[in-house]
Design a protein around this nucleic acid. Structure first.
Length: 199
DNA sequence: CGGGGGATTACCT
DNA sequence: GGTAATCCCCCGA
């Protein structure tokens, strides 16, 4: 509730910055997995051609057009999920992609969750910096999939928690992995964080 | 109803 | 740095 309120009064780019430093809390049975959000990107609805919602509402993106504070989870490349927080007001189709979190609790479980996706587990070192430093990696680590699409982030088993009202130092860059609207400064990360997908 | 592409990642050269 | 993996969705016909 708190978050929906805080978020809906912000422009989506501001919401993307506001989310930096806040906690993402995933509960699976008794397991508690907690990450601090360190990297985000804003997607600005039907005025942003890079956004899934640019062409209007479809079955895939319908959650983006719903109320803020809910999870928009989509699959890509046939094997990965990405997790977004719906922002702005219902009907606008705006959201913030969570691109990286810093593991705070449940790191060992996150490592196990990530391990399941590897083909040659001996090759890849799953240290803390490599557990959730990417939009699909954090979905693996926190076991986020399409079953959570549309979930209200005020409630378990996936919840946003206000961690700090003190704004961290933020670096602003262009967004990653898109082909349209590449020049817009809509990616944000916590300066000096060692847990971002890239600097 | 078929084809192309994707807000990525890991592994190999 | 190049590319396979892998499938859902959307668009155009």
């Amino acid at each position: 509730m708190l978050f929906a309120k805080e978020i809906q009064n912000l422009e989506t780019a501001q919401a993307a910055k506001f989310l930096l430093g806040q906690k993402l809390v995933r509960q699976i049975g008794k397991q508690l997995l907690v990450g601090k959000i360190v990297e985000t990107e804003a997607y600005l609805g039907q005025k942003d051609i890079a956004s899934h919602s640019y062409n209007g509402e479809t079955p895939r993106n319908s959650v983006m057009f719903g109320p803020p504070g809910h999870a928009y989870v989509y699959s890509t490349y046939g094997m990965h999920y990405c997790f977004n927080v719906v922002t702005s007001s219902a009907g606008n189709g705006e959201a913030v992609l969570i691109r990286a979190v810093e593991p705070l609790e449940g790191m060992e479980i996150m490592r196990q969750n990530r391990q399941l996706f590897l083909k040659s587990p001996s090759r890849t070192v799953l240290d803390a910096h490599n557990l959730s430093s990417g939009p699909a990696k954090l979905c693996q680590a926190l076991r986020i999939d399409k079953s959570l699409n549309g979930h209200n982030l005020a409630n378990p088993p996936l919840r946003l928690e206000l961690a700090s009202k003190l704004a961290p130092k933020i670096v602003t860059t262009t967004r990653i992995g898109i082909t349209q609207n590449r020049e817009l400064p809509l990616r944000f990360y916590i300066k000096d964080s060692d847990y971002v997908s890239r600097k």
